[in-house]
């Protein structure tokens, strides 16, 4: 029996490899120089969804992302790898959201979707780094949650069995569906793009993107509806404006400091015997070792 699976995915700046060219002269990071990527653990989440689709024919995978217009890129990326469709939730009203306001907006969008069996999120986004959105979405929808998932073992008879990776061990748990899981980086990597799907979805566009393009692309969606990426604004979901964006965010950023890579005076040594001998004598004399 097929499942209706939603994958929550976020477009993030690639904070992992802040190279020299992304550093400003003052030693801080130039965020604009970082490429926007599919949040790494959301790819692990997508792979778990794809495995369910392999195992249970009839399963459909929908990507839901909230972000600016260019976040449609990650929906396309998902389609190239085997997702069936995607929704982009985009509106100025969502700007400045903390994790609770983000979760609220996502949960309102999820409530608009037809019967959902399983929501799969990444454990954590590499920019905000909180790992809070998955559990908060689950709570807002009144659904059970399983975090730190490494493998979905089975999803049959209305429940799902999951292996979790904890700090010091593993746990196997069973959860009734519908429910929310968040997937760890220790789960299998996502399969690459599929060449056929790349051809099929290359021209998938949101309505806003189509409006900015030549006429013939607009015509494409008329006979190929799968090329339409659904775009939702705040008017397409039922929500209380007080819970959205900055005003719906209990946490406020008071101050942001860029980390500056400071230099301190190090004594430079070579591996020469005398130098290492001298160092050891010094450390023993000042009781650092020994």
């Amino acid at each position: 029996m097929g499942l209706n699976v939603i994958v929550l995915a976020k477009q993030v700046p690639d904070t992992r490899n802040v190279g020299k060219d992304a550093m400003k002269a003052d030693g801080t990071v130039n965020r604009a120089a970082l490429p926007a990527i599919f949040n790494p653990e959301d790819l692990n989440a997508l792979e778990q969804a794809l495995r369910l689709k392999d195992k249970y024919p009839g399963t459909t995978i929908t990507i839901l992302t909230m972000g600016p217009g260019r976040a449609a890129d990650i929906i396309r990326e998902g389609l190239y790898r085997g997702a069936d469709n995607g929704y982009l939730l985009t509106d100025r009203a969502f700007a400045g959201s903390d994790t609770l306001a983000t979760s609220y907006a996502l949960s309102c969008a999820l409530k608009k979707m037809s019967k959902i069996d399983l929501i799969i999120a990444g454990r954590q986004a590499i920019d905000g780094d909180t790992a809070q959105v998955g559990p908060q979405v689950a709570e807002k929808l009144g659904l059970p949650q399983v975090t730190y998932a490494e493998e979905v073992i089975s999803a049959e008879g209305g429940s799902i069995t999951i292996k979790r990776r904890l700090e010091r061990g593993v746990e196997t748990v069973e959860m009734p569906l519908p429910g929310v899981i968040t997937v760890n980086a220790s789960a299998p990597e996502c399969r690459p793009r599929n060449a056929k799907l790349l051809m099929k979805f290359k021209h998938a566009r949101t309505i806003t993107e189509r409006q900015g393009e030549a006429e013939d692309y607009i015509d494409l969606t008329a006979d190929r509806p799968y090329l339409n990426i659904e775009e939702w604004s705040v008017n397409d979901i039922e929500s209380d404006m007080n819970w959205l964006g900055l005003s719906g965010s209990p946490t406020k950023v008071k101050k942001i400091e860029n980390v500056v890579f400071q230099a301190k005076e190090a004594k430079h040594l070579t591996p020469a015997d005398e130098e290492i001998d001298e160092l050891m004598k010094e450390l023993i004399a000042n009781h650092t070792i020994g």
């Binding site: 301190k264 190090a266 040594l269 591996p271 290492i276 050891m280």
Partner: peptide
């Protein structure tokens, strides 16, 4: 090296055995 008190420029495989050797010698 920017946060180090001592920066030894060399191969781990060469330096670490020397640390062991000279620690033993001096204690």
């Amino acid at each position: 090296n920017k946060i180090a008190d001592y920066a030894i420029t060399g191969d781990v495989g060469e330096v670490v055995p020397k640390l062991i050797k000279f620690y033993k010698q001096n204690t």
